[in-house]
Amino acid sequence: MPKYLLSVYGPTERNQFGDYPDKESMLQAFADTGAFNDKLVAEGYFVFADGLEQATTATVVDGQGDEPVYTDGPYLEAKEHLGGFWVIEAPDLDVALRLAAEGSKACRGKVEVRPFHTEQSIKAMLDA
């Protein structure tokens, strides 16, 4: 079954309540997202999901040279960065979009839906 990455973006630096206006809304969003995750598991869509520490904690590594080079901060310079994601299995995009809409409501953010490679698409690439 096709797999999709459902990503949520947020500001580079977050306030003390994640990206939420206050503690109460943060707890509510966590609870709703938890319930959504449970539903994904129960209905057989769930592969993986988690939230990330803020982007300023990232390190970029370039190991292509003789010695690896380390750079503090995220790979892309941007105002917003990946803040968390789901990996789901769904029969087609319609199902993935429907689930993404539910996830978006639960976590209070826009969700980007992106398909993973499949065995078939890799094969097509190899045969090209």
């Binding site: 096709p2 029969p91 995009l93 319609d94 993935a96 839906v113 398909p115």
Partner: peptide, 8 residues
């Protein structure tokens, strides 16, 4: 996109 994203 239709192919890669599995638009039904």
């Amino acid at each position: 996109k239709i192919r890669a994203a599995h638009i039904p």
